Amino acid sequence: MSLSDGFHDVPPGKVAAVVTHLEMRAPADVRPAPTLAGMTLRRVAAPSSDWYKDLFRRVGAEDWLWFSRLRMEDTALKAIIADPRVHIYTLIREGVDEGLLELDFREAGECELAFFGVSKNLIGTGAGRFLMNHAIEKAWKEPIIRFHVHTCTLDSPQALPFYIRSGFTPTRQQVEIADDPRLSGLLGANAGPHVPVFR
Rank of each mutant, 00 (worst) to 15 (best):
L77K: 10
D83Y: 07
N121G: 06
D63I: 06
D50Q: 13
L100W: 03
Y52M: 12
E107V: 04
F56P: 12
L122V: 03
E110T: 05
W66Y: 14
I92D: 10
N121A: 13
F105A: 04
L77N: 11
E110P: 02
V86N: 11
R85A: 15
C111H: 04
D54M: 06
E73A: 15
I81N: 11
E94F: 01
V59E: 12
K78S: 13
S48Y: 06
L122Q: 06
T75L: 09
D97H: 05
M72N: 13
G124M: 03
E107P: 01
G95T: 05
E110M: 08
R93G: 13
F115Q: 08
S68W: 11
G99I: 00
F56E: 14
P47S: 07
A79N: 13
L70T: 08
E110N: 05
L113S: 03
M39F: 09
A79H: 12
E98P: 06
W66T: 07
E73R: 15
H87R: 08
V96F: 03
P47F: 04
L77V: 00
A46Y: 07
G124K: 02
T90I: 01
E62P: 12
D74P: 11
L41N: 07
W64A: 02
D54A: 11
L103Y: 05
F67R: 10
E94D: 15
F67K: 09
Y52S: 13
P47W: 05
A114T: 01
R43G: 03
I80L: 14
H87K: 08
R58V: 03
Y89G: 03
S68C: 09
S68R: 10
V44Y: 02
A108K: 08
A76Q: 15
G95L: 04
E98V: 01
S119V: 09
R85D: 15
I88S: 07
